[in-house]
Design a binder for these strands. Structure first.
Lengths: 237, 237
DNA sequence: TATTTGCACTTGTATATACAAGTTATTAAG
DNA sequence: CTTAATAACTTGTATATACAAGTGCAAATA
């Protein structure tokens, strides 16, 4: 059962996508016209168009009748909001992290409204709480709960100024692939008042997330409180 | 500049999509074969396949060689206005829309912090405000601003119980491809208090969005206020 | 009976062609 | 110089056709 050769339209798609990804084509550039691509690659227009259609669907280009195929560049990450995007937009030098509760193993308190598998529940979870400050002012408070399976030395690793995502990827070869989230506006309770130094009933953004990973059946959870008075969450989709 | 008739593949796409959305076809069902669709609608296979390709890209169906086009059902929203629990199960019958300010042409007040092109600014915008209710209780208040270019009869179309996205797609062949958004928690101001019937200083979710479309250079803007007391915004990523 | 073969169906890939329609730059007319 | 027509591009839509390849079932075979 050898690997079957990829169809022509797919090969052209991969080629063009590669040229966009390595910045040979950049935002605003025009790809060669369909007829040029036909001539260059010895294909007919329907085949070339199929490759271009794929690039359109994935957000690499748009096409304009009479003009050409306009390169958009690398598609933006999906998701209602991405915290990593937020941090990079702010600049990591200004963002500091303070551990409120060090990673430790405990039973699941509540997985923020998401259902747990029986295995995850029986094994307990790694729990940690962190406060993130921008210019020394607290902006994020997050609680993370990770199923306690097979993550050696995890609780002793330091999370100051390091992304949990990075640690999972580098030390455990686990990539966050996607997930779902719930977003609400709430008023600050006692704990938030204490950590954020805001008045009671100050409006706070609350995000409950379930994060799915490349490791089959391995998801973890986080609950994020955000003071959006001076900063708002930004995301592309 | 009359409304141009939609192409054949789009009409077939809309038809099939509608049949899936109203549950005439459900999860696991097979659509009629391509040749059947050709015969029924007097089209050739490439045209029929284009319609089916669109359904695949949007997650309504998958196709299996040798077998047929398998219906998956309603795809998950891209976090537009998905609500807790049941995105689709809420059922559109419970969601009603009340027009507060009918679509009309005016100058741009403020594009919610996003930059406008010179062309968009000079042409003015179509402005509308809507209140959305779930079980007769107001949950969303949204303001929409659309560049005033080339949308014949737009201001006279009714938006009650119809998605703006659907109208753009069906009547103008414009698909929303993505965008960016800012999310904040704020306290209810006078206008929100009036529309939502909540107390002053009630926490409210505010989302400012810029929505990019398949039409080159055409983006529009919306500002959404959401009472997340009983429903929260959900999204997958 | 159990297995294989073959047929009739399905979707997948690809070519060749034609005309419609939007964009841009050039050219001609005023 | 300014404006309008034109020509030469571009992508959009649609047809007609051919063969490859996967699926499922029925008939032939062992």
């Amino acid at each position: 059962m050898g690997a079957k050769e990829a169809p022509q339209y797919r090969k052209l798609y991969e080629l063009l996508r590669g040229l966009i990804e390595d910045l040979s084509y950049q935002y605003g550039d025009l790809l060669p016209s369909e007829n040029e691509l036909c001539a260059t690659h010895q294909l007919t227009r329907p085949t070339v168009r199929k490759a271009l259609d794929m690039l359109v669907n994935e957000g690499f280009i748009i096409r304009q009748q009479g003009k050409g195929s306009i390169v958009l560049g690398l598609p933006k990450g999906i998701g209602i909001l991405s915290l990593t995007g937020t941090t990079s937009a702010i600049g990591q030098d200004l963002l500091t992290t303070k551990i409120i509760v060090k990673p430790h193993i405990m039973s699941w308190e509540h997985a923020f409204g998401y259902e747990l598998s029986e295995r995850d529940r029986s094994l307990g979870c790694i729990h940690m709480e962190r406060l993130r400050l921008i210019n020394e002012k607290p902006v994020f408070y997050d609680i993370t709960m990770i199923p306690n399976l097979n993550l050696p030395r995890f609780t002793s690793r330091t999370f100051e100024n390091r992304s949990l995502f990075d640690i999972l990827r580098k030390h455990y070869q686990i990539e966050v692939k996607g997930g779902e989230q719930k977003i609400q506006a709430i008023t600050a309770d006692d704990r938030i008042v204490k950590h954020f130094g805001v008045k009671k009933n100050h409006p706070i953004l609350r995000v409950d997330r379930k994060l799915d990973t490349s490791k089959a059946g391995f998801s973890f959870f986080s609950q994020i409180y955000c003071n959006t008075e001076n900063y708002s969450l930004i995301g592309s989709f």
